[in-house]
Design a protein around this nucleic acid. Structure first.
Length: 198
DNA sequence: CGGCCGATCCACT
DNA sequence: GTGGATCGGCCGA
């Protein structure tokens, strides 16, 4: 079932990042439905987190959506060519977010291959935040969209991720964040989800 | 208004 | 393992 507002508005973004492992990120764009099981996330803890775009309360047109209540998408352009998808969490004016960094395909493979230009399916199809967004059709122009509606949403498919299978590491690509670069805010599910894509 | 650079990826060595 | 692609956002002047 689809995750509701109460999932997203909780205050512990690290906990939410772990809980998003094993959940299904789903899109329905132009009638093309794609679903993927989330396997890698990163927590961004708002105004006190030097790695966050909202660090220090920086509030711009781009980051504004992070200051809304949980349950929205923050999608921005990185390196001029990649859209990176984040889930906004916590309540209004607390700009927490979770970056979705990796997933495994569950359905809509044909659409994903068309979007990425790949000839055939591999396990690398959704390995990486830029690739994942491209395959799922999460263009940065969709930033701000609600995750409680029927274009982009996240479902609980009753897939269990055991705590001992969650690897915590420092986040990727944030060397500029000084001491916060060392925080173990990246989470990887080291588990075979036994997905049979269709 | 100019300049710098990023929560990346892939081709090539 | 490394460097180039590529451009919107952000900051300082």
């Amino acid at each position: 079932m689809k995750l509701d507002l109460s999932f997203y508005t909780r205050e512990n973004v690290v906990q939410i990042s772990k809980e998003l492992l094993g959940k299904a990120l789903c899109t329905n764009i132009g009638g093309n439905v794609t679903e993927a099981i989330i396997t890698e996330t990163e927590a961004y803890a708002g105004v006190t987190d030097k790695a966050s775009h909202a660090y220090g309360g920086r509030r711009t047109k781009r980051t504004e959506i992070m200051f809304s209540k949980g349950g929205h998408a923050y999608i921005y352009l990185c390196y001029g060519m990649y859209s990176l998808f984040n889930v906004v969490t916590n309540v209004e004016n607390i700009p927490h977010a979770v970056l979705i960094r990796g997933a495994v395909a569950l359905s809509g493979i044909k659409t994903m291959l068309e979007r990425t230009g790949n000839k055939k399916f591999t396990n690398e199809l959704l390995a990486g935040p830029g690739k994942l967004s491209k395959a799922l059709g999460l263009h940065f122009s969709l930033t701000g969209i609600s995750l409680l509606h029927n274009t982009v949403w996240i479902e609980d498919k009753d897939i269990m991720v055991y705590p001992e299978n969650i690897l915590a590491t420092p986040r990727i690509g944030i060397d500029y964040a000084a001491e916060d670069a060392l925080l173990p805010y990246r989470f990887v599910a080291k588990q075979n989800f036994n997905i049979v894509p269709h």
